[in-house]
Nucleic acid binder design. Structure first.
Lengths: 102, 102
DNA sequence: CGTGTAAGGAATTCTGACACG
DNA sequence: CGTGTAAGGAATTCTGACACG
């Protein structure tokens, strides 16, 4: 709740590189492949969040396992769809339960 | 617990300035007056935490109330001593209670 | 005391490209 | 496809100083 530090985009790429152990080249490339979405300062400098650090470490693990960027992207989307599906089913059940009571 | 994002020093002064609304000049000055303690990158760039953002906003409030930097510093120290004192008393009471039982 | 500013330099980041495989 | 690197430029930050009050 309240101020969510984890998702505030405030960290520059140099620090992200240190935090993740990934080269700046890799980090920029994963953005090009739509795996990560930094914000930009008015001057054009990329800004990342702690959540991005976690995501990058996850990406790095999958790359090490021989996965390709498009597969990782597809996997993320599938996860999204699954959670949307879960939400939808949950809402449906709640509605059903609610309708029984009235 | 675990990873404490709040106290990781990863944010550069430009972002801190945006987040707090304070000029970079002020932020550097408060460091000179020992009110704030950024880390440094290998190249000498200052790095702050979200906790520092909170502290700076607190400092700014006190400055607006006409307080001077040395007074703010003294107040922080007093707070430290008070909490140390509380800790000490608490430990004392716990020890006393514990000693009664054996 | 607290803060703005101009100055010059150094560190940081950016993009597009070439290279290798 | 994924990543390193050299290149040139732009944005960011740093320090020490002068100014005002």
């Amino acid at each position: 709740m309240s101020s969510n530090y984890k998702d505030k985009k405030v960290i520059t790429i140099g620090v992200i590189s240190e935090l993740t152990g990934l080269s700046e080249r890799k980090i920029r490339y994963y953005e090009e492949r739509k795996l990560i979405f930094p914000e930009r300062s008015s001057g054009g400098t990329r800004k990342y969040s702690f959540g991005d650090v976690e995501r990058l470490i996850d990406i790095a693990d999958k790359m090490e396992d021989g996965m390709q960027t498009f597969e990782i992207r597809r996997m993320e989307q599938k996860k999204m769809k699954n959670s949307e599906l879960r939400d939808k089913m949950l809402r449906g059940q709640l509605n059903a339960a609610f309708n029984l009571r009235k």
